[in-house]
Design a protein around this nucleic acid. Structure first.
Length: 408
RNA sequence: CGGGGCGUCGUAUACCGGUAGUACAUAUGCUUUGGGAGCAUAUUGACUGGGUUCAAUUCCCAGCGCCCCGACCA
């Protein structure tokens, strides 16, 4: 991608927020705030988010089928489960409904999709032979948080992967639950935060008398507090309130949450399957969420320095930032063009800074945008290119062919 | 939902009861070109509604919005 034709604008003097991810992502032109807790994903931001979601999708496809449910749903579905009173729910109505004397609040902007998936599963899976199964989606969710804050870490409209599993017994549900846990850890490892992400026991809410589990990424700016047992390494959510003795406290951000729903929703929707003997039995369900846009914020919180973001290679919007210097020298420009073509042909995602700006501006953008490798072509580099690692800061001059070979 | 702060060019900010200033950005020209370049010129602004006043961007009230702290977060 050529910088000159990309819809990208960095902001040298962007406002500094207390939240690092809000500051850096806006300064780097990844996101644009529309209102409190609501952001546009700009092209380079969307590319990053898509990389995160692709990793999530690849791991989820191993255990579930992807589908896409609507953001809008009829209020009736939520009345079935009695969850219309949840104060984070957004209601929606047509702009002219009032003058047409129709009822207000006929629709809900979904904050989660148990109310939609349960009747959908019921339409399609009624025999014990059809079980177990799991479906998931990556979709935009709406929650009217009483206080949106911290950039992407707590929005009112945000991206989430939600999966739902269906079983004929609690044992089968719990077995799948463990499979999902493993899939989640695979995802967090691929995103570069595996070692810092703990599975914590948390309250099961009104779904179960047992625990639910949260995936908490240790992070200074996280809004949760977790307790890790010094001996066993077991982690607990603050709300479960273990004694503090023998535990180490960490700030953390909740990047995933899994719930054994058991029969709460199948009861509400009267969703039963027919067993081998012809009897009706209630379906057991589980739900599993990962906040993909929040993950993007958490990754920035964890990987940055005073110059900008340091994306892990797996999520970086581009692999290479090609800084073309000496744009007034046609031979050097020709070399840079050739390097760009070569990188592109090698399948390496490259942001080619072909702008006619000063060197400082290019280097500053390379650092701010957090692209893993900065490749410089200038009068100095001649037949070679200069390659600098964003993470280590180390720079070396080498042939392009060697560089391509090294990173492939 | 409680508390605090704020609302001024595209962005970040300053001043002011009577002509709103600066920086960045943008445009043009010249000079620059290995760490957010320099000079010159130009363009662009008071959240909304009400009140006080001869006069309100400034003071007061309300609404809306944003930031921060706390509570909340199935």
């Amino acid at each position: 991608m050529k910088y000159s034709s990309y819809f990208l604008k960095t902001h040298k003097d962007a406002k500094a927020f207390d939240s690092i991810n809000a500051t850096l992502l806006q300064k780097g032109g990844f996101i644009d705030q529309v209102m409190s807790g609501v952001y546009t994903m700009l092209p380079i931001g969307l590319k990053t988010l898509t990389n995160i979601e692709t990793i999530v999708r690849e791991e989820m496809n191993k255990i579930a089928s992807e589908l896409l449910m609507p953001a809008l749903s009829p209020t009736e579905l939520w009345e079935t489960t009695g969850r219309t009173g949840i104060d984070v729910l957004f209601e929606a109505r047509g702009a002219n409904d009032a003058s047409r004397k129709r009822n207000d609040g006929q629709y809900i902007l979904n904050s989660t999709h148990e109310e939609l998936i349960t009747p959908l599963a019921q339409k399609n899976r009624q025999s014990y032979k059809d079980f177990p199964f799991a479906v998931y989606q990556i979709q935009t969710k709406f929650r009217n948080e009483e206080r949106a804050k911290s950039g992407l870490m707590r929005g009112r409209e945000f991206r989430m992967k939600d999966m739902y599993s269906f079983h004929t017994s609690e044992e089968d549900l719990l077995a799948f639950y463990e499979t999902a846990k493993q899939a989640y850890m695979n995802i967090f490892s691929r995103l570069g935060i595996g070692e810092d992400t703990k599975i914590t026991k948390a309250s099961g809410g009104d779904f179960t008398t047992g625990f639910s589990h949260e995936f908490q990424t240790m992070c200074e700016s996280g809004e949760d507090v977790i307790y890790i047992n010094d001996e066993t390494g077991e982690a607990w959510n603050k709300e479960v309130a273990p004694s503090e003795e023998g535990f180490t406290k960490h700030n953390a951000s909740e990047v995933g949450n899994i719930f054994p729903l058991n029969t709460k929703f199948s009861k509400a929707f009267d969703y039963s399957y027919t067993d081998a003997s012809g009897k009706k039995q209630l379906v057991f369900m589980g739900s599993y969420g990962i906040g993909t846009s929040r993950l993007m914020g958490v990754i920035v919180e964890k990987f940055h320095d005073d110059k900008g973001i340091i994306w892990p290679e797996s999520v970086a919007p581009f692999t290479v930032y090609l800084a073309s210097l000496n744009r007034d020298d046609s031979a050097t420009v020709a070399t840079a063009d050739a390097v760009y073509e070569e990188l592109t042909r090698a399948g390496i995602e490259t942001l080619y800074d072909d702008r006619d700006t000063g060197t400082g501006a290019k280097f500053a953008d390379a650092d701010l945008l957090g692209i893993p490798y900065r490749v410089v072509v200038s009068k100095k580099t001649g037949e070679n290119v200069e390659v600098a690692s964003r993470r280590t800061g180390e720079a070396k001059t080498q042939s392009l062919a060697t560089f391509i070979q090294e990173i492939r």
